[in-house]
């Protein structure tokens, strides 16, 4: 999936994501926080459709698209293969309180019942991280644990 980005001086930044069927989605992030979504057909000058979102709306839509509020059935099926356990991951945001602290000092397993089995940091991954491992912004924490504990874990990372 190709994503290209460019500056729109005086307006903001433009991201183009090529999707299937000769279509692409263009996201324009305004300096004001407003987002515009355009669906473009290749070789066509005018967008097929467009929608304008406020900062808040865009975050909500983003959350739904990333599957953090509701998981589609397909994902559910893959998870159910491991029975009552889930394997999933959470990306650490820059406002998370766990940034800069180690797994050990956070006592993550005791607090949430979920175990971190890997940290994906940029292009590298840290498998079975030590308790002394520090968590950084942008880390993707891959966890395993009882299904019911996962939501608590998300709140732990967000908080």
């Amino acid at each position: 999936m190709g994503i290209s980005e460019s500056d729109l001086p005086g307006i903001g930044r433009r991201y183009e994501i090529l999707v299937g069927g000769g279509q692409s989605i263009v996201v324009v992030v305004h300096h004001s926080g407003r987002r515009d979504l355009y669906v473009m057909k290749r070789h066509d000058e005018d967008p097929l459709c467009s929608v304008e979102l406020s900062d808040d709306q865009a975050r909500r839509v983003g959350g739904i698209l990333s599957g953090s509020t509701f998981k589609p059935a397909v994902v559910e099926e893959i998870e159910s293969i491991i029975g009552e356990f889930v394997v999933d991951w959470v990306t650490v945001g820059d406002d998370s309180s766990i940034v800069g602290r180690t797994i050990g000092e956070l006592r993550i397993r005791q607090a949430t019942g979920m175990s971190i089995i890997a940290i994906i940091r940029g292009k590298t991954s840290i498998n079975a991280p030590d308790p002394s491992q520090t968590i950084e912004v942008g880390d993707r924490l891959v966890v395993v644990g009882p299904r019911d504990n996962f939501r608590g874990f998300i709140n732990f990372v967000l908080g």
Binding site: D7, L8, P9, G10, I11, R14, D36, P47
Partner: peptide
């Protein structure tokens, strides 16, 4: 450009460049 919903168009980058 914002009102005509042309921010996604390819020429928009050029137009804004000319403005700069």
């Amino acid at each position: 450009l914002v009102e005509l919903k042309r921010l996604a168009n390819r020429e928009t980058g050029m137009i804004l460049g000319i403005i700069v």
